[in-house]
C-alpha cells in the first residue's frame, strides 16, 4: 500500500461525486427527511422515537454507503478502468482503502447532518453523548462501504447490484432489533442475529440511548462493527484479480 496512491484514489472518487450534485444531495438530504418523517410518525410516543431514531442514525449511513459503493465499484469493474488500474502500479489495498476514505468523508458529513438535526431540531433524547452516536454512525458507514465493495464482485450488472440491497441488508434490518428486541425472537433467528454485523450497529446505538458513559458493551459493539468492516474490505480486495479470463 502506498499513501500517495491511496489518497489520489480517494480524491478521484470525490471528484467523480462532485460532478454529480444530485447524488450528493440525495445522500445528504434523504436521511434527514426520513428522520423528520419518523419523528412525526411517532408523534404520540416520543420515547419510541428516541430508540428507533437513534438506531436509524446508524442504519442510514450503512444502507447509503452500501448502495453507493457497490454501484461505484461495479462501474469500475465493468468500464475497464479497474483492469487498466490493475495493469498499473496500484496496490489492491490502495484502491479499496481509497474508496473507503472517500465515502467515509461523505459519511462524516451525512452523519453530522443527521445527528445534528435529530438532536438540535427534532429533540432526540438519549442518555449518552451525541458524539458517541456520531462515532457509531461512522463505523456503520465504514461497514456499509466495505460490504458494498465486497458484494459488487458478485454482481455483473447494476440490476444485480441493486438487488443485493434487499438480499444482504433487509434480512439484517429485520433481525437487528429495530422492530423486536433480539432476545424475543425465535431462538434460531436470535442466534442468527448474533452473527450479523448490523445487530451490533444497532446495539451500539442503544447503548448510547440508555447509558450516559462509554460502556464495555458499547466498545464491544463498535469493535465488532469495525472488525466486520475490515474483514469485508480484505475479502473485497481479494476479489480484485490482476489477471482475468
Amino acid at each position: 500500500m502506498n499513501p500517495a496512491r491511496t489518497l489520489a484514489t480517494a480524491r478521484r472518487v470525490l471528484r467523480q461525486l462532485s460532478h454529480d450534485p444530485r447524488t450528493i444531495a440525495l445522500m445528504l438530504v434523504v436521511p434527514c427527511v426520513l428522520l423528520t418523517l419518523l419523528k412525526y410518525v411517532f408523534d404520540a410516543s416520543p420515547h419510541t422515537f428516541d430508540s428507533a431514531g437513534a438506531s436509524l442514525l446508524g442504519i442510514f449511513p450503512l444502507v447509503t454507503m452500501f448502495l453507493v459503493t457497490s454501484i461505484a465499484t461495479l462501474r469500475e469493474r465493468t468500464s475497464g478502468t479497474l483492469e487498466r488500474l490493475l495493469t498499473m502500479p496500484l496496490g489492491k489495498a490502495d484502491l479499496v482503502v481509497g474508496y473507503a476514505l472517500a465515502f467515509g468523508a461523505v459519511a462524516v458529513v451525512q452523519a453530522a447532518l443527521a445527528t445534528g438535526l435529530t438532536f438540535l431540531v427534532l429533540g432526540l433524547d438519549v442518555a449518552g453523548s451525541a458524539w458517541l452516536l456520531l462515532v457509531v454512525a461512522l463505523a456503520d458507514a465504514f461497514l456499509g462501504t466495505a460490504l458494498g465493495l465486497f458484494v459488487s464482485a458478485f454482481a455483473a450488472s447494476e440490476f444485480q447490484a441493486v438487488q443485493f440491497l434487499p438480499a444482504v441488508l433487509l434480512p439484517q434490518l429485520l433481525l437487528c432489533g429495530l422492530f423486536v428486541p433480539r432476545g424475543d425472537m425465535q431462538p434460531v433467528l436470535s442466534a442468527v442475529s448474533d452473527v450479523l454485523p448490523m445487530s451490533y450497529a444497532v446495539d451500539g446505538m442503544s447503548q448510547v440511548v440508555h447509558h450516559s458513559g462509554v460502556t464495555g458493551d458499547f466498545v464491544r459493539d463498535l469493535a465488532v462493527v469495525a472488525g466486520c468492516a475490515l474483514l469485508a474490505l480484505a475479502l473485497g480486495a481479494a476479489t480484485l484479480r490482476r489477471r482475468t479470463a
Binding site: 460532478h19 475497464g80 478502468t81 487498466r84
Partner: peptide
C-alpha cells in the same frame, strides 16, 4: 502503456 479497445476512462471526470 496499455490501451484497451473500449476506452477505459472515467466518464464522470
Amino acid at each position: 502503456g496499455y490501451v484497451t479497445q473500449a476506452p477505459s476512462v472515467y466518464a464522470d471526470l
